[in-house]
């Protein structure tokens, strides 16, 4: 499954980084601690978080994550978005909170 395949089902907003919408998804990782993601998220994971700053993209790019989903209607900071465009990491948004987003994504991926 690619990032673009979950947009409609999860009702996600695409903020930017759409060059990466064809990234293959291997799973998800939900965390707001950057070192936790750095240490434990595997490549191809979708990162679900409430962090909206540029360092999120640095980590997503270094770890080859598939995309980032910002929860609860949060929007990326301008420099996060610029970095996402540059690195081709999709930044997506949902009105749901982390628990719901994680659950929906989990259900989609185990089908």
């Amino acid at each position: 499954m690619q990032v673009k395949d979950i947009i409609a089902t999860l009702n996600l907003t695409i903020f930017g980084g759409s060059q990466g919408l064809t990234h293959e998804i291997t799973g998800g990782y939900t965390s707001d601690l950057l070192s936790d993601v750095m240490g434990h998220a595997e490549n191809g994971k979708i990162w679900i978080t409430l962090q909206t700053h540029k360092n999120v993209i640095a980590i997503a790019s270094l770890k080859d994550l598939a995309a980032v989903i910002l929860i609860k209607g949060l929007e990326p900071d301008a420099d996060m978005l610029a970095q996402a465009e540059e690195e081709g990491i999709p930044v997506l948004g949902t009105m749901d909170q982390a628990f719901e987003t994680t659950g929906k994504l989990f259900n989609l991926l185990i089908r």
């Binding site: 601690l33 950057l34 750095m38 240490g39 360092n55």
Partner: peptide, 15 residues
């Protein structure tokens, strides 16, 4: 607040 400073950094390096 930025999600840093969880005391995991040096452990990550060690690992």
């Amino acid at each position: 607040e930025m999600g840093f400073g969880a005391g995991m950094g040096l452990q990550n390096i060690k690992n």
